[in-house]
């Protein structure tokens, strides 16, 4: 009837975590039977795919970053002098000509910081890349844990500042999408498949930005008396509805940014021409 007694390896892991003295003596680190590792593997694969693609494009994509009238979201705003000329676009050369690296590296810091400190992505990479924890009720491999109480992880608390920066960046990408209603010569009143791609992308980016937990706090979550601030309460209610979809919006906007850049890259490299609607 008995299937198990305290096994030899229990001694090695004694006095830590689920094997601490006094807790039920169970040798296994977990007893889960489901495929608890699958979401973590898929998350890691998705993030690595994006990291690999965006790194390649950020470092080596300058000459295929603009295909009039569309600009890649990785290169807007373009703050160095080595940007392609974007008619009406955000090529502001604020950094001057001394910046010889890819201009994408300047601006990508902000969306990168926004997503790196995002409450959803934190969960995703803590679980997938750091196994802290690998899954619920699955013992983590680390001997010590201090969470976000000290450097460097205490810096996650700056998330709201990246949210503030994300708003003008999303505003510029919105302007880029509007510029998509031109033809290659800059005449207004035209639209192509690329316009649609840029529009979908910016809707998802705004969705992700507005559903941010810091946004939810700032618009109304910090209040104690909603009844005294009906407008902010209404805004908080809207943001809360979006916030419930924050994970989905995080993934959708991540892939839409990558796919928008890919679309511009294919146009700029001459792989195909933009199908024009009118």
């Amino acid at each position: 009837m008995t299937t198990e007694t305290r096994p030899p390896e229990a001694a090695e892991t004694a006095a830590r975590g689920v094997h601490s003295p006094g807790r039920a003596a169970i040798a296994q680190r977990h007893l889960r039977l489901d495929r608890w590792w699958l979401p973590q593997v898929m998350t890691a694969a998705g993030l690595l795919l994006f990291i690999g693609y965006s790194t390649w494009r950020a470092f080596f994509g300058l000459h295929t970053s603009y295909a009039a009238p569309y600009v890649s979201p990785f290169y807007s705003p373009c703050l160095a002098a080595n940007c392609p000329t974007m008619k009406g676009g955000a090529d502001w050369a604020l950094f001057g000509s001394w910046w010889q690296l890819s201009p994408a590296l300047i601006v990508l810091i902000f969306p990168l910081g926004f997503r790196l400190t995002c409450y959803y992505y934190r969960k995703a990479y803590y679980r997938s890349f750091w196994s802290s924890p690998p899954a619920c009720a699955v013992a983590e491999p680390h001997a010590k844990y201090t969470g976000e109480t000290r450097l460097p992880l205490i810096l996650q608390n700056v998330h709201r500042y990246f949210f503030y920066f994300a708003i003008p960046v999303a505003g510029i990408l919105t302007w880029d999408a509007i510029l998509g209603f031109r033809d290659a010569q800059g005449r207004w009143g035209h639209m192509g498949l690329g316009t649609l791609v840029l529009l979908v992308n910016i809707v998802l980016i705004w969705g992700y930005t507005a559903s941010c937990h810091s946004c939810r706090h700032i618009v109304g979550g910090r209040l104690r008396h909603f009844s005294k601030h009906p407008v902010r309460y209404r805004m908080w209610t809207w943001v809360s509805k979006l916030n419930a979809r924050h994970m989905q919006l995080a993934w959708a906007s991540l892939f839409s940014v990558g796919l928008t850049d890919l679309y511009v890259y294919l146009l700029a490299s001459g792989a195909f021409s933009d199908p024009r609607f009118f």
Partner: peptide, 10 residues
């Protein structure tokens, strides 16, 4: 100990 929480949602 709020800082210990790394919001992994378990």
């Amino acid at each position: 100990g709020l800082g210990y929480c790394n919001i992994t949602k378990c």
